[in-house]
C-alpha cells in the first residue's frame, strides 16, 4: 500500500506557544481521512504546515515518498496536493469559469506563458468545463464569483482545489456554515471529487465525518490522541473523554 502523506514528529510553535506537538501521521493512498478535534486543537495549523503555508518548527513531512517539509506552497501544489480554505478564498472579481481556469493552468503545463492565448487552449477549456460540470455551476459560468451564494462559493472553493487534478485533496471545513440540505449536497460533491484520490479533511459536522471517512484522526491540544477506523474512534475511551465527552456536558 502506498503512503500518500507521512508526518514524523511534526511540531509547530508560535513564540513560546506550542500549537502542534510531535505529530505522527500516515495516510494511505486512496484513503478518505477526517481530522476532528475541539476548536483550537491545531487542525487548521496542521493543514497549513502540510500545504506549506507555515514552516514547521521540527519534524518532517513527506508526500508520496518525496520530502515536502518547508517547501513553498506552489512547489507542494505542483507535486499534486490541492487544498481548500476554511474561509472562502476565491477570486471574487473573476467569473466562475475564470476562477476554475486559474486552477487548471499550471497542471496543463501553461505556466507563465505570455505567448499563447488562454482561450485557444483546448486542454484548458475541456478541463475547466469538466470541473464546472462536476461542481454543478455550469449555469453560473459567467457570474462574478463574488456574487455567488455562500454555498455556491464553497462549491467553487472545492472546484479550484481540484481543478489541477491533484493526487491528494485537503478540505478545511467544507461544510462550515451550511444548512442541512446544503451539507448533503456538499457531501455528495466531496464524494464525487475525491473518487480515486486521497482525501484529508477537517470537519466539525460528525454526521459528515462518520458518513464519509475511512479513517479518523483526533487532534487535541496539538497531539493526535487516536487515529483509527470510525467505529473504533466512536468506542475509544480517550476520545470520548477528551472530545466527544465534552460535547455531552
Amino acid at each position: 500500500m502506498t503512503t500518500a502523506l507521512q508526518l514524523k514528529d511534526v511540531a509547530k510553535s508560535f513564540g513560546n506557544t506550542q500549537i502542534i506537538r510531535d505529530v505522527d501521521l500516515d495516510i494511505a493512498h486512496g484513503e478518505l481521512h477526517a481530522m476532528i478535534g475541539p476548536n483550537g486543537a491545531g487542525k487548521s495549523t496542521l493543514f497549513n504546515l502540510i500545504s506549506g503555508k507555515y514552516h514547521v518548527s521540527g519534524g518532517t513531512i513527506s508526500f508520496y515518498d518525496s520530502e515536502i517539509t518547508n517547501k513553498e506552497p506552489y512547489e507542494i501544489s505542483r507535486m499534486g496536493l490541492g487544498r481548500s480554505f476554511q474561509v472562502t478564498n476565491i477570486f471574487p472579481r473573476m467569473s466562475v469559469y475564470e476562477n476554475l481556469r486559474c486552477g487548471v493552468l499550471w497542471s496543463t503545463g501553461h505556466r507563465y506563458s505570455f505567448w499563447h492565448l488562454v482561450n485557444r487552449q483546448r486542454d484548458v477549456n475541456e478541463r475547466t468545463e469538466e470541473v464546472l460540470e462536476m461542481i454543478g455551476l455550469t449555469g453560473r459560468r459567467d457570474v462574478p464569483a463574488g456574487m455567488l451564494s455562500y454555498s455556491d462559493q464553497r462549491a467553487l472553493e472545492i472546484g479550484i482545489t481540484i481543478a489541477g487534478d491533484p493526487k491528494m485533496i485537503m478540505l478545511d471545513e467544507p461544510t462550515a456554515g451550511m444548512s442541512h440540505s446544503e451539507t448533503e449536497q456538499a457531501v455528495a460533491l466531496i464524494r464525487k471529487v475525491s473518487k480515486g484520490k486521497t482525501l484529508v479533511m477537517v470537519e466539525h459536522d460528525m454526521g459528515v465525518v462518520f458518513d464519509l471517512a475511512d479513517k479518523i484522526s483526533v487532534l487535541v491540544y496539538g497531539e493526535i490522541i487516536a487515529s483509527d477506523a470510525p467505529q473504533n474512534i466512536r468506542n475509544n475511551a480517550a476520545v470520548q473523554e477528551a472530545y466527544l465527552g465534552t460535547e455531552q456536558h
Binding site: 506549506g52 513553498e72 506552497p73 506552489y74 505542483r78 490541492g82 477570486f91 486559474c102 499550471w106 489541477g164
Partner: peptide
C-alpha cells in the same frame, strides 16, 4: 485579486 490563493494552485 488574491495572491494567497494563487500560491496554492501552483504559481
Amino acid at each position: 485579486d488574491n495572491a494567497e490563493r494563487v500560491q496554492f494552485i501552483g504559481y
